[in-house]
Amino acid sequence: MMGFISYLVNGISLGSVYALIALGYTMVYGIAKMLNFAHGDVIMIGSYVVFSTVSTMGLPPAAGILISVAVCTVLGVVIERIAYRPLRQASKLVVLITAIGVSYFLQNVALLIYGANTKSFTSVVTIPPLSLAGGALIISGETIVTILACIVIMIVLTLFIRHSKPGRAMLAVSEDGGAAQLMGVNVDGTIALTFAIGSALAAVAGVLLCSSYPSLTPYTGAMPGIKAFVAAVFGGIGSIPGAFIGGILLGIIEILGKAYISSQLADAIVFAVLIVVLLVKPTGILGRQIQEKV
């Protein structure tokens, strides 16, 4: 029983990371109507920044995280400006291929700077593990921090989007960019803001992920990126609560699958569940039909 609860908590923790990454996918999809496949690699870059600043240069973890968030925010905006904005009128396929190109570019930049060897990432979490049920259930500090960070970020993000002016502009652009522009919204600026927020969250996700799973390579972001994308589709792409629910469920399914079925098959199970969900409800759990405007 305690084993199950422990797996469940770990699943929620991993799912929290997926949720944070999925937010970036889903917000960008909702507003720019594109899949930013380079999003996972932003996580990896963010983790390397923390590795360099904290493990190599010896800065305090908080400073390293702040620098990482700043670097990723700028990186996200720059990627959008250089790679995606010129393609605003291009076909979806062209944008998708460009995004894959950006992804390889980022991986190779990391390869060039840090080499292919695995770096061991030092956890930035310093709080001690929590011992429950007389020591039968131990929850690591990383797990606690990850879950709390995800909850706080979800609340702040939801409040920002629902109740701030730039947040409302984001909702308006995601529904009808032309109409939003008629209201005076700078659509390009709003898309840039979305990339900035998504990339900042990716930096946070990267730090949390590497604190729990401490090996860092130029490909560290790829798999979590794909899984978070699955989580976003799972929850209903374009929906913020959907990304949250999709991420958490995916994390739980993955960890429970690993524990009780097969650690080799865990990823296959994740994708199988996605296929079943999409067969039953093609728009995902919370998704709505996206109307293509003519």
């Binding site: 409302r168 308006a172 032309g178 109409a179 939003a180």
Partner: peptide, 21 residues
């Protein structure tokens, strides 16, 4: 605009606020 193009998933009040953006 033609076809009204109100923001369907925002409240009436939020739509009006968007007008004063």
């Amino acid at each position: 605009p033609e076809g009204r193009r109100v923001f369907a998933e925002l409240s009436v009040y939020d739509n009006l606020l968007m007008g004063a953006y």
